[in-house]
Design a protein around this nucleic acid. Sequence first.
DNA 1: TTGTAAGCGTTATCAG
DNA 2: CTGATAACGCTTACAA
Lengths: 327, 327
Amino acid sequence: MVTIRDVASRAGVSPATVSRVVNGLVGYSDETKVRVEEAVAALHYEPDTFARGLKMKQSSVIGVLAPMVSDALASQVMSGVEHAAREGGYSVMLGRTGQGSTFAPGYLRTLRTYRSAGVILISAAITPEMRRVLGSNVPLISVAIRDGIRFPSIGIDDERAAYDGTKHLLALGHERIGLLAGDPQSTLVNAVRERGYRRAMAEAGRPAVLEQGNSLYDSAPPALHRLLATDPHLTAVFALSDEMGAAVVNELQRIGRRVPHDISVLGFDNTRTATHVYPALSTIAQPLERMGELAVERLLSLTDPGQKVMPHRLITRGTTAPPLSSH
Amino acid sequence: MVTIRDVASRAGVSPATVSRVVNGLVGYSDETKVRVEEAVAALHYEPDTFARGLKMKQSSVIGVLAPMVSDALASQVMSGVEHAAREGGYSVMLGRTGQGSTFAPGYLRTLRTYRSAGVILISAAITPEMRRVLGSNVPLISVAIRDGIRFPSIGIDDERAAYDGTKHLLALGHERIGLLAGDPQSTLVNAVRERGYRRAMAEAGRPAVLEQGNSLYDSAPPALHRLLATDPHLTAVFALSDEMGAAVVNELQRIGRRVPHDISVLGFDNTRTATHVYPALSTIAQPLERMGELAVERLLSLTDPGQKVMPHRLITRGTTAPPLSSH
DNA sequence: TTGTAAGCGTTATCAG
DNA sequence: CTGATAACGCTTACAA
């Protein structure tokens, strides 16, 4: 292993000087800088992470905690995170957490011992428990979820997004729109979206009809059937995740209902899943990658990351159309 | 920060003794063990990763390099990796590499500087370049790919699996079976699977008809149309990835061909994607999670990881049936 | 069974 | 502008 002393002796300077030029500090002549750099290059010197970590009080790893649920969403956020992290010379350590956050404490502990520069939570709220095990030195931020008050986060206005989505369906002429809600425990995302739907329906003077899924594919078919049982004349269903939306499209197909002729379907998030069904799913887009980038930027900016609301966008593809009855 | 000296003085012993009990070494009385453990617990002592890493020559991170391509596959392997790693007290650092492996060298460098205990490559072959940047101390293993000779790997017998898949279609009565191949550059997976298909077709005295995709969803529809242009009477298509298989099912639907009545479709890998289309995709399963677990076990076993061939399995779901003409 | 002390490779302080 | 030197927290001979 080549150490800073090797570089120093080859360049004919002291280790301290090497450290200075390597870290871009001030206090050396141009000439020594050149000599040191030559030596560094010649010897392929790389500072030792552990020695450095021991001295300094933090490392350059950023932790990301992603739920195994909604892989596609997390994956897109990750792209952004990774990009921004790499740009800033940071490495990303990803932990996937289970349904009941089984692994989260373990990961957080690891991240703390690695003196992580910060951690990003995807689609998960920051809990006091998390704050506690992480210690107070490590900044924390949530992505794709937010409550607008308590913790640093980057997300969209979920209430408004769901409101807009419902409005779109209403504008198309639909009057009976069912909502396929997500896990009700997710009060910060699903409950909020649900509110947006209810508001739009109420404004239109239409009754809300909804059933709970859990955001995942498999939860959608049964929920869809409950929805249809409640109102067999539904002409549109708004699913609060693309996975559920895709499942609805497929299930409708299976039971012989044509999409979008008989029933329109609208998804949520605009993950890759939305384009992996036929017809491709109309959905509400969140700027997932950008949110990931922003998360690392804010995390590293040292100032309080605060809350950031990103714009959402309606994307119409093949699953939304006016209802048959509107002709 | 609480250090080993704090624990030592509280327990009334030396730092060396604390180190010994913390690391489960020998050489202390039961009584001191108890005292030290009490002190550790009372002070919430945690050994400093960096100080330890500086002394010892390796850390307990396992690196995983996954292609952004085929997220679903990587995700399943990751589950296994994570599980086994956690079991052994290791942390997992995930790096996603681009199409042209853009990030791979950077990640590998990071992993080396973190003195990673080993790195796992998902669906990627170990190149001399990788070996070089990683240094010779870090063990490396590939998962879901193998060439059976040169590098440590865990995978299935791709030739045989593709052969079996083709045989299945043949046994159903199909005679005109098109192959939707993957990236031809992937000589270790796609080229091998292609060989299996060719062998089965040759044995059946049927002509091979194939087109290249790149394993991803979007590459499939155009390739499917080329396939259909070559032989409009195809009654089955075998796609060498579930994403392509799903795309074929959807595209067939779009152009008005019924699956499986008019055309059967068989996928490959048995990722979650296979169940996210309607009808659900019949496919060849690889024990992805198990492969991930095994990868870490072998990586950490210190002996040469060697090559391991896992069993594959045909899973018939809704997209394969006898051809119409067989009645 | 236990303690002392010498590093591991860096960075930071303080002289020069 | 540069060089000694003292930590950082831990492990491990080597002594006792």
